[in-house]
Simulated assay, not measured.
Amino acid sequence: MSDDTDDTTDFDGIDEPAPVGVKLGSTRTVLDLPDGRGGRERQMTLTCLATYEDAITGEERVLYGHDAATEYPDTVRFMLRSGLPEDDASVADAKRFFEALVSAHNVPEESVVVYAVPTIDNETGVNNLKTVIEESTVGKAETRSFPESLCGAIPAYGDGLEAVDEVFVSINMGSTTLEACAYRRGEQLSPFSTGSVTGNEVDRWIVSAVEEETQGRVHIDRTTAREYKEDHADVYGFEPFTDVVQQPGGGSHEFTVDRGVRDPVDRYIDDAVNVVANEFLPELANDHMKPYQLALGRPIAVTGGMACIPGLTDEFENRLSEELDRDVDVVSPEDPATAAAEGAARIAERLV
């Protein structure tokens, strides 16, 4: 799996449409593509772009991903901060971003594109996402969408599409929402989502917790908080770390972060357990008792960026079992952050 590399795939000589999986996320976007050698590869990049003027021709150029965020931090645009393109400006940005991405990786027009859609009660945003993908230059053979929590669960249950023929519960721990849904042979049952328990909320909590831990001497931005979370968070093996900030009057200040990361992650697990055990599962049991009983007899699939934190899914399993007063098994794919694109690609392969 690559992150903002220049790796491209040569699709020449491939007679059938290329199966492509897409997860267009609020923070990162993932493409799952054939690698041209009979295998698959996943390309990940930040979901952002910046525009600049070509110094020679004067034409407007588009820079996307990590390069855009690094070189133009003051003007870079993350067009899916809420998880979906909300207005005409964000739709236009998302289209330019997606076209630049698929062009950089030589995704052919004659491809079958399956993309993951979040379970959000936002018809306008979902339709905008559909516009971005389905009006692009790729996916001319076929373009389909499937729920993100279904796509993400597919790699958690095996190497094929076994999940589509089962009854199970999937929980997507993403940046902008926590989604939970039961599936019965691919059919959604009691889809649930909340914006109160998210990776973005954890970033905000880290900002506040670091300021409190340093007695107000250090104030970090949310980008730094996200980097602390992704680089250092570990439920069972966390080790305090140090960082340095420049003082407004000159000089630098070195500080140690300990509870500034541990407490927000611990709070997130408690909140996730609470909404799943006391909001989603009771609603599922009330609406679909038999599928509820069947689903809890199988492992619960947990995916999304927060599931990448070492030990988080194990502790979620422990606390959920305690809250429900019954043993609950939790499984995660090898890479929860890219699982939705991988699952979408497997569906695309079936369609091909």
Score class of each variant (00 low, 15 high):
Ala345Val: 05
Ala295Cys: 08
Asp3Ala: 11
Asp67Thr: 09
Val257Cys: 07
Ala285Met: 10
Ala104Met: 08
Thr143Ser: 15
Arg319Tyr: 02
Arg262Ile: 13
Ala209Cys: 12
Ile171Trp: 08
Val30Cys: 10
Thr47Ala: 10
Asp32Tyr: 11
Glu86His: 09
Val273Pro: 00
Glu148Arg: 06
Leu150Asn: 02
Leu312Thr: 02
Ser26Val: 07
Asp159Met: 09
Asp3Gly: 04
Leu84Asn: 06
Glu283Pro: 01
Gln43His: 15
Asp203Ile: 03
Lys95Glu: 12
Met173Thr: 05
Gly199Pro: 01
Phe255Ala: 10
His232Val: 00
Arg204Leu: 14
Ala50His: 05
Asp165Asn: 14
Val245Gln: 12
Thr198Glu: 06
Ala307His: 08
Val91Cys: 10
Thr47Ser: 15
Arg184Asp: 15
Lys229Cys: 06
Glu230Met: 09
Leu31Met: 07
Arg28Ser: 11
Gln293Met: 15
His66Ala: 13
Leu31Trp: 12
Lys290Val: 13
Val244Gly: 01
Tyr72Leu: 06
Glu59Tyr: 09
Ala94Gly: 12
Ile300Asn: 01
Glu16Pro: 00
Ala69Phe: 08
Val197Asn: 06
Thr57Tyr: 02
Asp314Asn: 13
Arg40Val: 02
Glu142Leu: 12
Asn172Gly: 07
Asp271His: 11
Asp32Gly: 00
Glu187Trp: 12
Trp205Glu: 14
Pro291Glu: 00
Asp231Thr: 11
Glu212Thr: 12
Ser175Gly: 14
Ala295Trp: 10
Val20Pro: 13
Ser149Asp: 04
Val352Phe: 05
Thr5Glu: 15
Arg319Trp: 04
Glu212Gly: 07
Thr9Leu: 06
Glu110Gly: 02
Glu279Cys: 07
Leu324Ser: 04
Gly38Ile: 00
Tyr64Ser: 09
Ala340Trp: 01
Phe97Leu: 04
His66Trp: 07
Arg81Trp: 07
Asn286Gly: 12
Leu129Asn: 04
Ile206Phe: 08
Arg204Gln: 13
Cys48Phe: 11
Ser208Met: 08
Gly25Phe: 08
Gly21Ile: 10
Val330Cys: 01
Met44Ile: 11
Gln188Thr: 09
Asp266Ala: 15
Thr198His: 12
Glu109Pro: 00
Val331Tyr: 01
Val107Cys: 07
Val265His: 01
Tyr228Arg: 01
Asp327Ser: 13
Ser111Asp: 11
Ala209Gln: 13
Ala344Tyr: 05
Glu334Ala: 04
Val302Lys: 02
Phe238Asn: 09
Val20Gln: 04
Glu110Phe: 06
Val20Ser: 03
Phe168Thr: 02
Arg61Asn: 15
Gly125Lys: 14
Leu189Ser: 00
Ala209Thr: 10
Arg96Ala: 15
Glu317Met: 08
Val102Met: 05
Gly237Ala: 10
Gly199Asp: 02
Gly305His: 04
Ile220Thr: 03
Arg144Ala: 11
Pro108Leu: 08
Phe168Val: 05
Val328Cys: 09
Val275Phe: 10
Asn106Asp: 15
Leu46Ile: 03
Thr51Gln: 15
